[in-house]
Structures are given as C-alpha cells and as structure tokens.
Design a protein around this nucleic acid. Structure first.
Length: 765
DNA sequence: GTAGGGTTAG
C-alpha cells in the first residue's frame, strides 16, 4: 500500500459495513465525526454518478470522510460512463496516492477509459500495476485488456493476454475474434472461432454470432457466412432484430443482395439500423435506384430515417449524378436537425463534388464545426474531381499546417500521376521532389524518372532525390550518369548530393567511382565530409571485403563515429565472416543509444554461421535481458490495389494452402536443400522448425502468392520490413529464372530486382 | 457495481 501523505485521516482499526467499506471504530471523539457513507448517501452518490451528474456526485463524494474502494469505483465508472476518461484515470491515480486499494472493478473501469481515449501509456502502466498486484489473470480484467490492446492496434499484445489466460469465457473468445476482424485478419478470426468450438465446450451466443458475422462480412467467406446463418436459425435467433441486421449486413458486404433482401422480408422487427444496413448495401453494391427506393419503402414500414440513413443514401445520388435528389436529402437533414454531423457533412461534400457542384461542396466544408482527416481528404478529392488540381495542392499545404498528419488517402490523391502531369507545368518543384522519392520508395522507379524528366524547373533537391531513387534500386550507373548531367547542366551539387551518389556507389559496388566522388566533393566543391558521407564510405569499403582497411578507416574518421558507422562495419563483417571485427563493432554500438535489435541479430547469425552455438545463445539471451524482441518479419504484396501481408509460416490467407504448396514446389524445383534434418524433441518444436524453414519465410510466401495471383509474365513487387536472408535471396534469383518473371523485393534498405537468375544488388546487401 | 454485440463518410 502506498504511503499516506501526511495530514490525511488515518484509518482506525477497522470494522466493515455491508459494502466492504471501512469504518472508523466508534470510540472516543470519533463518534462525533461523520460516519462513513450512510446507505442513503451511498445510493445518492451512485445514482448521481450513474446518471452522469458528476459535479453533484463529486460534491457528495467529497463530503464522505473515508470513501472506500466501492465509492471510488462508482466515481471512476461515472466519469468513464459520460466520456470523461481522463478524469476517470485521474481519479484512479488519486486513489493510488491516497492508498485506497484498487480492486478488480476499479481496473475494468480504468482499462475501459484508457482504451476509449487511446491513452496507450496509461493503459500500459495500468497493465503493469495489475501484474504487480496479481490481478492480471482475472477473467474480466483480461477481457478488458484484450479489448484495450485491440483498440490500440497492438494485436500481438492482445494475443499474448488471451494466450496467457488460465480460463477463458465467451467474452474472451468474442473479444479475440473481434480483435482479429478489426485488424483485417478475417481468416484468423474464423480460425479462432473454430478453435473455440474445438477446444472448449463454449457455443456462440447472440453476441458471438454477431461478432462471427463481422468476420465474414466480405466477399471472401460466403460459405462461412451461410453456416453462421444456419447456426443462428438452429439456435433460435431467427427473429432477433440485431442478429438479423448483422446477417443482412453480412450478405450485403458479401455482395449477395438477393439473400440480403430475402432475409429482410422475413418476420422480425426491422429497426432504422436494419434499413440503413440494406440501404448502404444497395449503395455500395452499385444499385443506387434500389437504395433511393428504400426512402418510400421505409415510410410504409413506419420507420423514420436518421443521419446514418442519409449518409448511406448520398453516394447513390453521386452514382446517378442526381444533384437534386442529393439536395433534397441535404434539406431533409437540415429540417430534421441532423446537422452539424461530421460524417454526414463529409458525405455531403463528397456528393456535391461528385455531382459537379463544387461551390456547394466548398460551402458545406467551410461551415463545418468539426473536421477530421477524412473530411480534409474528401475536400482535396473534391477539387481533383473537378479539375482544380492547384486548389487541391493548396488545400494539401493548408492541411500541413494543421495538427493532422496526411495518410495514404491524402498522399494517393495528391500524388496522382495525372495530377503530377498537370502541375509540373507550374512551379511546384517542392512537391514534385517529394513525389519523386515517394514513388521510388514505393518501388516504382519508372514513375519517379518520368516525373523528374517532365519537370520544367529542377532544383538541387530534385537531382538529389532522383540520384537517391536510382541508388536504392541498385542502378549505380544511372546515378553516376545523372551526376554527370547535373554537373553539366544542373545546379551545384551540395552535401546531400554526395550522400546520394556515394550511397549509389556503395549499393552498386562501384568502389573506384565512390572514392573518386569522395575526393571530388572535397577538392572540387570544398565540402568537408560529414558523418553520413563517412558512413557511405564504410559501406563501400566493407563491400570490397577488406575489413582491416574498413576498421582502420573508421578509426581515422575525424568525427565521433555513430551507431550507424559501427553498424555498417558490423554488417560488413557478417558477409566476410570476420567475427573479430563484428565483436569490436558490437562492443562500440551497444553502449550507444540506439535501437540495437538489428545488431544483436547480425551478431547472433554470425555466431550461428560459424557454428558457435553457445555464443549465439548468449547473444540471444542478452537481447532478451535488454527487453528487445526480434522484429517480426513481414512481407507485403499488392494486388489490385489491395495489400496482402505475410509473416513467416503464415496460414491465415484465403489461398494459404495453395501458396504453401507452390512455395514447396518451387523450393524443390530450384533444388533447394530440403528441410533441416529434424533434431526436434516434440511436435511443437518440429512445427516451429518447419515454420522457420526458408521456404516458409514471409517473403517467399508473398512472392508465391504474387506469382499465382497475377498473369504470367507480369512483374511481382514485394516489400518487407527487414533485410532479406541469404537463402531467400538465392532462391528468388532462381525463381525469377524458372518462372521467367521480374520479381522485385524492397527490404528495409534497398530494392532487389531479380531477373533471369540474378539480382541488381550483385549479391551484396 | 466489472468484460464482448447490429448501420455511416475519403
């Protein structure tokens, strides 16, 4: 228990009332003091808090001498209940300071406040406190934690809580399924549901059904959706309004409007939400007339539309270019008092813009009392839709001044190549420069080049960006050609230009050229090399394999070497298997403030390569002791504007078994050594080994999925968050040959272009 | 007195 600040009442040896409240013992003068929480006072505080009259509740609460956990909880719950989450958390802290013991109820209210207000740090602190007091395995608390981590987007943490629960109930499973759905892992959600039915005696209840339906509300799982429908009927939920609404929504989102409409006609009580689900279904499946037809149908059903109805109807007006219908919905929304309403106003902006009435769109936008990123993006798009590209860019620049961070939607509309074509005749060099690099970073060097070549006015940054773009794609010679062009008819190179060109030389292994530029920058341009330039040189020398020279070069750098410098040396020593240099470099890196995960991994792998298992194990445990987790490797392949993300051994995708089969098949075809002879002691270990076998690596799965999901001969682009391993690099080279495909893999540093059995990086990365 | 649930915008 925390020490009590002085001056606060100290509890006397206690007796407990029926609420578990402590009372001072009634001896001596204490008898005249207020007795703690009389039942009437008690219920007054509770009902004030419950109804959200927090000022009243607080006034009553403060008059109580020794409020116990129950009353504190009532206050916290009250604040959380009316959305005053920070006050709720503040109350919890106050409770801690005063030494009042927080119990399981306190924590559920506090966790809910943290998740609702996305106060991640508070949430983590709270979880820490729970572990300390040993309440973390309480089923209610664990369930709240799962939801909290889900809200934070920390799926791994939610999973960890779930896996560590000694006992799970329906709520736990539903929460986990929901977590997977909201993070886009529908396959995992469904397999979670299956394992609930296989490993426990639990059966989904109505909430479970609704949650499960969310998992198959997409075109990918029509069969599972129908199965849940049958299950719901068998278990007597056929006339449950909410279950039916979810079913209708599921059919709509699976694109099956016939089943949705058939179910809609069944006997159950249709609420406005049911109508909205159907209306939105028609809208999103491109049946605008049916959608708008519901306005009349609803009247016969005696259901009044609400703001969501309007939001669901408006896209149909745009689809039909029916401005007057849109205007009449706007009028109805005003008459019914639905405005202001963030989502509805955003939909109105979109509708007006798509119906060609940009003036009305701008009027609605300018009158909005609240705007978020979606509304800004809608307005930016509104201009683009109406061929006002410069206005869109201006709005984009306005957005930069707000505290809102542009997201992929913002960038994709503003970086539209068509927009680029139009604006590069004006003087938006600033924007085009970032777009050049953006495209290259996304793997599309061709578009970067097109934009660069189309620019009328190129400044130093444009050249630097284009040279760096070539560098990360391993096009060293294009980079040096650009540099010559720049010297001939471009602006004067600066320090950053040399970072770009030196990177290009080191990535493409142009050692002599690299040294030439390193001298040139000093002798011709009078630039003294900065730490970044030295970093490029260490990479360049490291690549030649002369580690002794690299080490002496680092030691002679006239500036303080950073973790990046030592990191380059460490990476280079792995390639040459120079453990002495690696150890020396690691020794320098670890004391520096730096994310050392990668360094541990390199050192660990180097020891493994050399068969020094004990040392490898020491590195692994030291990494663990520093609380560092190996970054989960993820690879993403984009198909038809949709990103498919894989982790090692990933089986959560729709085409998982086919992908794995193709990966195994290709592995055999290229003559890859089979699985490591199994030294596994049990099934789990054997499975873990299989998962770690290179042909199950995330990048391999993403490449195979890309190959089977696209037409023969077309290129495949995969991006991954960590560097590609030797095995996969070799394998993908060969796969590019046997499949006759150009395969591009962008890792955390550079792009590898695999073509006809070789890679643009020259096998050094 | 605690945890999970139906529709909506770019």
């Amino acid at each position: 228990m925390a020490a009590k600040p002085s001056g606060l009442p100290v509890e006397a040896p206690e007796s407990r009332n029926r609420h578990g409240e402590s009372r001072p013992s009634h001896t001596g003068p204490a008898i005249v003091a207020r007795v703690v929480s009389e039942p009437s006072e008690f219920s007054a505080i509770c009902s004030a808090a419950e109804s959200g009259s927090m000022e009243e509740a607080l006034r009553l609460f403060e008059s109580v001498r020794n409020p116990g956990s129950f009353l504190w909880n009532a206050m916290i719950r009250g604040y959380a209940g009316c959305g005053r989450y920070e006050d709720a958390i503040g109350f919890y802290w106050k409770m801690q300071v005063l030494g009042v013991r927080a119990d399981r109820f306190t924590y559920t209210f506090v966790i809910k406040s943290c998740s609702a207000s996305l106060l991640t740090e508070e949430g983590l602190k709270c979880h820490g406190a729970l572990v300390k007091v040993g309440l973390h395995s309480d089923v209610f608390i664990s369930n709240s934690l799962i939801v909290m981590y889900s809200e934070f987007g920390e799926i791994d943490s939610a999973e960890r809580v779930f896996n560590e629960m000694p006992l799970r109930d329906l709520v736990s499973w539903n929460s986990m399924v929901r977590t997977y759905v909201s993070s886009g892992k529908r396959g995992k959600a469904l397999s979670c549901l299956r394992s609930m039915r296989n490993t426990s005696s639990l059966e989904p209840d109505r909430i479970g059904i609704i949650t499960a339906l969310k998992a198959c509300s997409t075109e990918t799982y029509p069969k599972q959706g129908k199965e849940i429908h049958c299950y719901a009927l068998r278990h007597g939920y056929g006339s449950d309004s909410r279950v039916c609404t979810s079913l209708i929504d599921m059919y709509c989102k699976s694109g099956n409007m016939i089943s949705a409409e058939r179910l809609f006609q069944c006997r159950f009580s249709r609420s406005v939400v049911t109508w909205n689900a159907l209306i939105y279904g028609y809208t999103s499946n491109n049946h605008p007339s049916e959608s708008l037809g519901c306005i009349i149908r609803m009247q016969y059903d005696d259901v009044k539309p609400d703001a969501v109805t309007m939001v669901s109807l408006l896209p149909s007006c745009s689809q039909l270019s029916n401005l007057s219908q849109g205007k009449s919905i706007h009028g109805a929304a005003l008459r019914r008092g639905f405005l202001p309403h963030l989502v509805l106003e955003t939909s109105l902006v979109d509708m007006y813009a798509k119906c060609g009435d940009l003036t009305s769109a701008e009027r609605v936008f300018s009158q909005m009392t609240e705007r978020n990123l979606v509304s800004w993006n809608t307005m930016i798009n509104a201009h683009i839709h109406n061929d006002q590209n410069l206005e869109a860019v201006e709005l984009f620049l306005d957005l930069q001044e707000k505290s809102l961070q542009p997201d992929i939607y913002t960038i994709s509309s503003i970086a539209n190549p068509c927009l680029c074509c139009k604006i590069w005749y004006s003087s938006n060099t600033f924007i085009l420069n970032s777009i050049i690099y953006l495209y290259a970073k996304c793997g599309d060097l061709r578009t970067s080049r097109r934009i660069f070549e189309g620019m009328l006015c190129r400044d130093t940054v444009s050249w630097n960006a284009m040279i760096m773009a070539c560098a990360i794609h391993g096009e060293g010679s294009s980079a040096t050609e650009l540099f010559s062009r720049m010297q001939r008819d471009g602006p004067q190179p600066n320090g950053s230009t040399f970072v770009s060109i030196l990177s290009a030389c080191s990535i493409s292994g142009l050692a002599d050229e690299g040294w030439m530029y390193f001298n040139l920058m000093q002798q011709k341009y009078g630039l003294s090399p900065q730490i970044e330039h030295y970093g490029c040189m260490v990479d360049l020398i490291g690549r030649t394999g002369d580690l002794d020279f690299a080490l002496s070069f680092v030691e002679r750098i006239p500036l303080v070497p950073t973790a990046r410098i030592w990191g380059s040396l460490l990476a280079a020593s792995r390639k040459s298997k120079r453990i002495d240099v690696a150890e020396a470099a690691a020794e320098k890196i670890f004391p520096l403030k730096h994310d050392n995960t990668g360094c541990y991994i390199i050192l660990h792998n180097l020891y493994t390569d050399l068969g020094r298992w004990d040392d490898a194990e020491k590195v692994r445990s030291s990494m663990q002791n520093h609380g560092l987790l190996r970054t989960t490797a993820r690879s993403v392949v984009e198909l038809d504007n949709k990103a498919y993300c894989f982790i090692n051994g990933d089986k959560s995708h729709a085409e998982a078994s086919l992908t794995h089969e193709v990966s195994d098949l290709l592995s055999k075809k290229i003559g890859e050594a089979g699985e490591v002879p199994s030294a596994a002691f049990n099934v789990q270990e054997a499975l873990a080994q299989k998962k770690n076998s290179p042909c199950q690596h995330s990048v391999r799965l993403a490449v195979c999925f890309g190959l089977i999901s696209s037409s023969p001969g077309t290129p495949v682009l995969v991006k991954k968050n960590v560097r590609i391993c030797d095995d996969c690099h070799l394998a993908i080279k060969q796969i590019s040959e046997v499949c006759r495909r150009h395969i591009t893999v962008g890792d955390s540093r550079i792009y590898h272009h695999f073509k006809e059995g070789s890679c643009s990086c020259g096998d050094y990365w």
